[in-house]
Design a protein around this nucleic acid. Structure first.
Lengths: 238, 238
DNA sequence: GAGTGGTCTAGACCACGGT
DNA sequence: CCGTGGTCTAGACCACTCC
């Protein structure tokens, strides 16, 4: 464990325990340097992580202010979670079923290029899957995987975890991903595949994932039903 | 302008111009130190910003990989933007109208505490406003402002920008905010206030904002109609 | 083994807040 | 004015990638 991570974890726990309730401020950097016997940069790095997380806010000349607590809502997903819907599973110990409803190969046309950002002519695996939680069809995943990078995909693999296959079996390293979130009217496919009940809209997360060589290898849309998911985001002043 | 910001901006421009197309890598840190005549930490800080933004990805032992470009979609809002719906205005030069439909004071009950996180008994201004863009009622804002901090609110101010009043007139410094995003069925208020057409769902952004003293001073829900907004988010491997 | 990024140190100077 | 956080430097050692 990195030194700065240890300091970060410790501070986080102390904030949580209410150790700083009197002042609602962190100790000054100088004090923390003394306390953890490290350089100022290391303390600052730990504090940066707390700032990124929205737990504290730093004011030049005054100190690091602890933000008032907010009610925690256990049902939240963080959009930054790497494994999207898998996170639901691990966090909340609900297991879900996956049904593959389409599995084929496509070549990227101009229209698909607009949607996916893959270069025109790229060959991709196209997969439609439905995620069923407690017998409710909650999420429709539409995947486009670049076959040049993700080869040997089968319907069997798609039933389990494609990411596990990509990372563990193919040894592809995943670096980073960009996501969009929007609300749209339900398509015919949505209505057929999901338990929308009376609703006629879906939430859509679009996800572009890159290998550690900087190549786009996946575009995925996850269509989810209303009332079930929420996403968190933080923002800090400029 | 900070040194690291200059380096960041320069690198970003060069990436955009395709200056690094041959390798799809940034120059090594050592080269950049030379080029910008600065310390390694400063270069690293500039690169961190590019990583945070999802433009590049760093691999230990190899270098900093530039990620393939993604189609840009002009209609995107960044959830991290501080001013929420105001951003729409400035980015896209559409001006919008604001209609105040309710303006009153409330005391936080147990139920409202669950929703807003304000302590029970706190006095707040409660405001409902509709944002009309191109004659379409697109967003319903429901605000709760802590009167202890945001005093002297009037309906006149609510018609314009409450944030401008808070920051410029009251001199309250805003530090940070947390946001949630979810999709829910439309309430009766939504149906009455928004041009939902055939849709029966809304997107909801919940926003908790803090002063630079760490006090929660605002809770706001923005209900928006489907098909009009999208939000961006980045995630990088642990 | 050479070269790369990741962590950490010790110290300097500046800008801002509160008194 | 003093104490605070913000920026920047110069150098050290480690862990990883690639040849």
């Amino acid at each position: 464990m990195n030194k700065f991570s240890v300091i970060y974890e410790t501070l986080k726990k102390k904030i949580d325990q209410g150790d700083y309730l009197q002042t609602m401020m962190l100790p000054t950097e100088a004090v923390l340097v003394e306390e953890y016997d490290c350089s100022r940069n290391t303390v600052r790095r730990a504090i940066s992580q707390l700032i990124d997380e929205g737990l504290v806010y730093s004011v030049k000349g005054r100190g690091v202010v602890i933000l008032e607590k907010q009610n925690t809502d256990e049902l939240l997903l963080n959009l930054s979670n790497f494994n999207g819907i898998q996170a639901l599973n691990s966090n909340q110990k609900i297991d879900y079923q996956t049904k593959v409803i389409k599995f084929t190969k496509l070549t990227i046309t101009d229209e698909l290029h607009q949607l996916t950002s893959f270069p025109i002519g790229t060959e991709v695996s196209y997969i439609e899957r439905v995620r069923i939680v407690n017998e409710k069809r909650m999420v429709l995943d539409i995947n486009y995987f670049r076959t040049e990078i993700v080869s040997g995909l089968t319907e069997e693999i798609a039933k389990k975890s494609i990411y596990h296959y990509i990372e563990k079996d193919l040894g592809v390293k995943i670096s980073t991903s960009r996501r969009h979130l929007k609300v749209e009217g339900a398509t015919e496919l949505d209505t057929l595949s999901l338990d929308l009940q009376e609703y006629n809209c879906v939430g859509i997360i679009s996800n572009w994932a890159y290998t550690d060589m900087g190549k786009l290898f996946e575009y995925t849309e996850s269509h989810f039903i209303p009332d079930t998911f929420a996403f968190v985001e933080l923002s800090t002043k400029r």
